[in-house]
Amino acid sequence: MTSPVIRIENLSKYYGKHRGIEDVSFEVERGEIFGYLGPNGAGKTTTIRIMLGFLHSYGGNVNIFDRNIKKNLLTILSRTGYLPGELSLYGNLKVAEFLEYFSNLNKKTEQILIRDLLDRFRCEPDKKISSLSTGNKQKVGIIQAVMNDPDLVILDEPTRGLDPLMRQEFYDLLRELKNKGRTILLSSHVLTEVEKVCDSAAIVRDGKIVTVEDIHSLRTKNYKILEITSKGPLDRRKIRPLKNITGLEFMGNMMKCHLHGDIDPLLKAIGKNYIINIESSSPGLEEVFIKFYGERHA
């Protein structure tokens, strides 16, 4: 059995008296897209910054590619791509110049790959970075993270500022990297995003790992908030017994519930009633935490 690409053991970091992370442990296997999920300020970025050598840990170990980061940082970085959560680029450079510079620092140039990525994300190489919108800067940031075909890609809130079309393109790119055997650590505070692309995820809250789960079990724990409005009264006797519905409320010809899993049983229970509108929304990460991990972690 091959050893994991990332192995983090009992990692802790304090900022003076303030907690950064405490006793964080998880592993990421080769070819895995691993979600690192948690609300803002939970400790996701702190963990990543220790992994990249920006911060010194208070205790614990970080091994990447089976090497300790304290002793082999540069070797590890030469095989790693990174997109920071708060991305800033050199505004005085053109897109192509910026990518050329960072490609040179990687000491590994993949010009064909860079051209493909520029086309794919519809980036204009001759544009000055200072003239780009936030979304376009984010695309340049994504390209620089993957342009040298790294074995490990660490992405901190990567879809910030991306439009839905580019977000989909980004998810496709992640799947392609996974198929090539690359390992991806994706930090996010958006549960639906992690569900969409990750194989497994660690959930971090208040600096501690709450759970590490495969995405299937996480998906069953997640739910959608549905509001259904019908023309006539809904048949409550048929809807109430459904096992994948919680938080059910009826208000005249309208019902509100939390849907776990597929919608088909609910639609069948509604039967031939004329549906005027279905509104679906995702709960915030905080709500999911409180609902599934209880007050213990809330």
Binding site: L52, G53, F54, L74, T75, L77, S78, T80, Y82, P84, E86, L87, S88, L89, Y90, F102, L105, N106, K107, Q144
Partner: peptide, 14 residues
């Protein structure tokens, strides 16, 4: 202050 140090140090330069 420009926010570019993270990217720079994420490359294999000491």
């Amino acid at each position: 202050e420009n926010g570019t140090l993270d990217l720079l140090l994420s490359k294999p330069v000491s």
